[in-house]
Design a protein around this nucleic acid. Sequence first.
RNA 1: GCCUCGGUACUCCAACGGUAGAGAGGGCAGUCUCAAACACUGCACAGUGUCGGUUCAAAUCCGACUCGGGGCACCA
Length: 842
Amino acid sequence: MACRGSGVQIPLAPRMNKNVNDEREHAAYDFAYVQEKWLPIWDQVQPFKSGRADDTREKKYVLDMFPYPSGDLHMGHAEAYALGDVIARYWVQKGFNVMHPIAWDAFGLPAENAAIKRNSDPRIWTYENIAVQKASMRRFACSFDWDRVFNTCDPEYYKWNQWLFLKLHERGLAYRKDSAVNWCPGCQTVLANEQVVAGLCERCDSAVTKKKLNQWYFKITDYADRLLDDMAQLEGKWPEKVLMMQRNWIGRSTGANVSFVIEGRTEPVTIYTTRPDTLYGATFMVVAADSELAAELVVGTGVETEFNSYLEKIKADSDIDRLATDRPKSGVFLNRYAINPVNGAKLPIWVSDYVLADYGTGAIMAVPAHDQRDLDFAKAFALPVVVVVETGEEDPNTSGVATTGDGKLVNSGALNGLNKADAIAAINSQLEKDGLGKSARNYRLRDWLVSRQRYWGTPIPIIHCSSCGEVPVPADQLPLTLPDAKGLDLKPKGTSPLGAATDWVNVACPKCGAASKRDTDTMDTFVDSSWYYLRYPSSTVHDQPFLKKDIETWLPVDQYVGGVTHAILHLLYSRFFTKVLNDMGMVNFNEPFTRLLNQGMVVMDGSAMSKSRGNLVALSDELEKHGVDAIRLSMVFAGPPEDDVDWSDVSPSGSVKFLTRAWRLSGDVTSAPGADFSKGDVSLRKVTHKALNDAGFAVESFRFNVAVARVMELVNATRKAIDSGCGGSDPAVREAVEAIAIMISLVAPFTAEEMWERLGHKPAVALAGWPAVDPKLLVADSVEAVIQINGKIKERIDVSPTITDAELEALALAHPTIVAELGTNAPKKVIARAPKLVNIVA
RNA sequence: GCCUCGGUACUCCAACGGUAGAGAGGGCAGUCUCAAACACUGCACAGUGUCGGUUCAAAUCCGACUCGGGGCACCA
């Protein structure tokens, strides 16, 4: 009845881009106008400014992963920032001093590649894109504290990358070594292990090859145990999936190092095994073909030619070839023997590429009966297979399947009869006693290769002097800025473009003054992002990377939000940096991110959006069509935040409809601001308080979509109350609509602000405060109880929430339906669970 | 191959071992309108992957299978 009229009569603000005279245009509110209206006002009010000197609120640090400025924001950004905003805005409403900062991860290859294409400077492209993204974020109403912005390509920022590099260098955690490194022929640079995905470059998908180079590394392996063990702190706070991936990546294994005497060599060779219990089953030894040990062992054997051609062959193989599952085993027999320390057996020594040079000691004892790879090798070269663990499975000799389970040891001297665990303990202590070995650990994790042969990154602050060696650039000369890109050929060619900047490269040694050269490589950009979260609280400080006092105030990050693509790389590196800084006494915690939320991706028709697939949805188009609030709402409501959002399943127009319904409510409230809610209609008040309670709980448990559903229910209930219930003048209606505005402000800030104004309040609704939930309004007057017979529901009755088991049981047994069902049979047993259920076992 | 997460209505999502629901969506009807659209109101819509176990009671716990997603992948 009055519903429609009252909505229409509220005078609309003048429209900016619609026909004012179009009377038939319904009172659907004009999102474009509302967006333009509030942005400048928010710029003044600054509701999200954090860390004011007089702020006494408890702190909360909500962090979104910072963007790479590759162009304008896309759908993925929209989702990520919409979700981060829900959390940040919620904590603001709950009365916290929230720091929700943003910056730009601005070094990296795309800028450099764009510069090459346009024959210009990567700086130009980068800063242009940053300006575009920044403007888009403001329009998207991100609740960022804009006073803390920085870019990692600013010398004021990367100065501290260099400073940190030198600190790591001082501590022996940054070092150079010759090694076979991952080489991307597309990007013409080396890659960290973490950047090789299934044998391909994570950036350009080229097949990664190996190259022997001298490169800089960070010694992350020194922290392997701590990176693993400290995950106990994150249990239940980070997605289990991410923890699992990190554990997997670090890949700690326990076993033993065992010495084998080599005929004709004075030094024994140590091998690493996780199954020392199977030592008696070793029938040959395999050495990694590309290891130094192999090169040494082959000398004088007469098989050098064969060995060398084998080495050539495997070098040509890319990682992709190596990953093929059905790859046949290959190798060369070295004509030499090792002696099994426990039984004196002569073990032929082979080289093969299935043993990795950089894991363990690069040499293994082969136990073909109990290791599939060894068995495959033994079969390929007709080597003996000796079973030493009776597992009850078929003999590997005949089945071709190695047995890896537990069982009784056989053919193993003193170990006979023991099970696996006891045998490992026994042999380990025996080996240790005899000085032949000891228990050991190994990790899949390798040191972090940080050198890059590209221009657009942080220059490595080292000077190479022929007499002094690696000399750090003195701290007072930092930042060591990049040379001008002008005149440099940035095209990838396998060595750093910085090498061509001769004025820059040639420098006097800071120690002895001799003519020396700067290191021409730049740092992996993951160095930049490994500590940026520490910079926000002190982003305007220029004589230190961050202030201790600021760190103690704000860190660690309470809530981190970002994509699961960084589950290993960025998160592992950041955890590593934090631990190093903790050891340096610079931070007082050892895990940087207390809680982590990984949002899913935005996909289209089930697959990732991409130009080539032709399923790209432009964020700007969607915003133009439906408005910022509707897109944000659609993202949040589409499902649990961890799940992918399939844009073909969401309905932005449905979001617009809902927002309009909510907004229209604010025009139907006729009571004055400050009305006494306690005098309001109790049934609506109960709905309001339940919604506030449930939505708050849902937000805190990351079920934002459920929170939105609760608000939708409240909107519907309020609509009903206005039209056919207590009416718009009832204070309960004001209470409900104000609660809706506040709850909606987490997702749809423009609509919420507009509602808030129409309700007679001043901006900003973001600071209105989450209304206190009255527990008295959360109890229902009556609840529905079910009566079951043998677990099947027969009746439903309304009962008081305080009914006792006995009363409920009596009611149930007296119910006509139940009496009829039971007939003359007496129930065997009655289970009452007041006030919700009675089950009669008949 | 190994590890891991999941399978509920047309779709996307909910349900302390105890009533399978809410919201969205699409459909139909009514109100309003000259009419339509919008809006409002009402209605209908249909479901726990398979098999077994535990239990008074299983979507929920356990086991097997199956299907789908993700991760790791010659790490000894």
